[in-house]
Nucleic acid binder design. Structure first.
Lengths: 387, 387
DNA sequence: CTTGACAATGTGTTCGCACACAAGTATTTT
DNA sequence: AAAATACTTGTGTGCGAACACATTGTCAAG
């Protein structure tokens, strides 16, 4: 009978058996973990020697080494992380180097993620010290980075949006063997603990796909780059490349015309004028806004000019974007999850420092598609941050 | 100058000030946490008394109580969770009550989530013992639940897909004050630590929306319920209700006709026949499959009959579904995230038992929309499970 | 006045690991 | 051969909370 089957995981693998075997299996599962003392007893040395073998600390005679390694080879020793952490009772400090959250709603979300992470890890003795810089001012990055260094952190979370200013510091971190995590913007020359971000090219693909769904007939699209800071132009171009390539690969019956516009550093008036020209195109079927703030700017312009039939695809769950999506002006948002990126960055650092947990060198976030109908479900699911 | 601004989080709130204030703030951040001994010293009693006050354990004189409470009121004492856990060194056992992963690819994903959670928590002394039941056999649920109880677990993670069989056990858990987490299927009468799942009605909305994007002209849709077990009919109907209501609310120029079909417990032949009739409808523009296995069954039928223009919306990242999506047969998947649901369930229990962390009573997962273009990004982002 | 009962409170031990230090043994130096 | 030095290894302590246990104090019954 099927109902008699049961399964017990032990050490991560699945064991199967008959009912009458349950007791000893449960016993196995119950048996407390192997400790250093156990290993010491088993290999006939003292706990101190085992400790030395485990950490390559101090010298150990060849015989003792052999004996301990033999035992270690047999069993699957997993140190009690809790005891380890308690014992070393260090107070780790993580410095965070990001743009001032007050300057931009995107970085505001990042700030929230940092705060959340700090709350989460405080009780483990990890403190977070943000060093905010001016996203319009390269020089301020340098200053903030200097300050961060002076504070002598045990680890850093960095959004290196200024390539040239960030570069020289990575050597410093490496020399001081201070682990650092990059997020949002990748820098190939750096050698961080890990990079957290998204595949920008693929992100453009998704944007194009969302534009394309159910589309009939020839169409032209506008790619809008609206950013206040010059830094991430390359990243936006990567998104655009993905967007264009999607339609390039498409070989259906319809023609698609893509034009990109750079509306950065324009004042309201200039922008309006330029936008009017864009909206004039009778073939215009969709706008792809490559930045999160660009998204609501594009939305407000569409609203202002009463354009209804134009599909708008943009980025991120900014408060303003939510409003425009609920109003039916924004059709799709691709969530870059700035909050969770920052949170995960700190978590990786904390796990590394506290528990010596290995960190994946690359954490590419899923390209979450937000629609009017699943929007609320995303807003209600904060607990995704829980361990 | 802006670059001179800096911010330091202390205790979760944001402090701001001028540069010359940094030192003492850093000092604050550095100061080690308050311990029971500190409180004892401050209130002029012993650590034991403080402990008794904190836990309402044993009797404490009114005066001592007053003094300790006065101190506790002043400071923000947060017990060191690590020390607490180490000290009580208990070996918590969590029983998991779910269908046999080998019976269904959906529950296979659940099984993976459980394994992952077990690996994650094992080092904290938490062991996971699955009790699998036969998803086709109500009675096996009862047997498995009995067995789970007999094992005397410290907590349970349950997928109560059999309402009537599950119901009587909740009282037992409550009486024994054993915390339990429900997932996948909610049971209003239960009073679990928390429920983990999705908003099914909204899920139907999302399905309808995905069907509707860019759609022109009148159309008819088929809602396909294909499930091998009878249990979750109500849940599928909830999805269908959401699907229908979406189009009900829509008041555009086009007419939409929705028909639902129950193909459960049909053999290949019967199903093929019925499907032929469905596909015969020249107006048929889309199929909404309400279950994860139903999705690939629908896909394979579409493929078999060479129907290309019909949009297929279904559920979950099953291996088979991935194949059909890559082949262009499935257009959208709504991810129910069974793996992460299970993982989070165990995490909630472990956090509750180990760290006494509060658990949100309701964890509704986001209704993730998977498209051919963002599919891979989801498959590559496992690390989302990391703490 | 002693003893028991009981409340109140302080002390001590435990968890598993990390690290410091002392004690022990082997090898070299004088 | 004694002393100095190096190398090995065992023991001990602390981390912070939890809990067991011992101690002190109080009051009433004997």
């Amino acid at each position: 009978m099927f109902a008699h089957k049961y399964f017990v995981f032990v050490n991560g693998s699945t064991f199967r058996g008959c009912v009458n075997q349950i007791p000893n299996l449960i016993l196995m599962a119950n048996r407390k973990n192997i400790t250093i003392k156990d290993i010491a007893r088993m290999s006939g040395v003292s706990a101190g020697t085992v400790d030395r073998v485990l950490h390559n600390r101090g010298r150990v005679s060849e015989e003792a080494l052999r004996k301990v390694l033999a035992v270690l080879d047999q069993i699957d020793y997993k140190p009690n992380l809790i005891a380890r952490t308690l014992g070393s009772k260090k107070n780790y400090r993580i410095a965070v180097l990001v743009p001032d959250p007050e300057q931009d709603p995107y970085w505001e979300l990042v700030g929230k993620g940092i705060q959340q992470a700090e709350a989460e890890w405080r009780q483990y003795g990890v403190t977070v010290e943000p060093f905010f810089f001016d996203m319009f001012d390269k020089n301020s990055y340098h200053l903030a980075a200097e300050k961060a260094n002076e504070s002598g952190p045990d680890g850093l979370l960095i959004a290196p949006i200024f390539y040239h200013e960030a570069l020289p510091f990575f050597d410093v971190y490496t020399k001081g063997s201070i682990p650092y995590v990059l997020f949002n913007t990748n820098i190939p020359e750096a050698n961080p603990l890990c990079f957290i971000g998204q595949d920008l090219y693929q992100s453009g693909h998704v944007g194009a796909e969302l534009m394309h769904i159910g589309l009939q007939g020839d169409a032209s699209f506008a790619v809008l780059h609206i950013y206040e800071d010059m830094h991430n132009a390359i990243h936006l171009l990567e998104k655009e490349r993905g967007f264009r390539d999607y339609f390039q690969k498409y070989n259906g019956q319809y023609a698609h015309n893509i034009t990109s516009y750079d509306l950065s550093n324009h004042n309201e008036e200039e922008m309006s004028e330029k936008v009017l020209r864009i909206l004039d195109d009778p073939m215009l079927k969709g706008i792809f806004a490559s930045t999160s703030s660009g998204t609501y700017i594009a939305a407000s312009l569409l609203e202002k000019h009463g354009k209804n039939g134009i599909r708008l695809v943009g980025y991120d769950l900014l408060e303003k974007n939510l409003g425009f999506m609920r109003a039916g002006i924004i059709d799709f948002l691709i969530n870059q999850n700035p909050k969770r990126q920052a949170f995960l960055g700190i978590s990786h650092l904390a796990n590394h420092l506290l528990f010596r947990k290995a960190t994946p060198p690359l954490s590419l976030f899923p390209l979450e598609v937000i629609t009017p109908q699943n929007l609320e479900s995303y807003l209600n699911s904060e607990p995704a941050l829980v361990k």
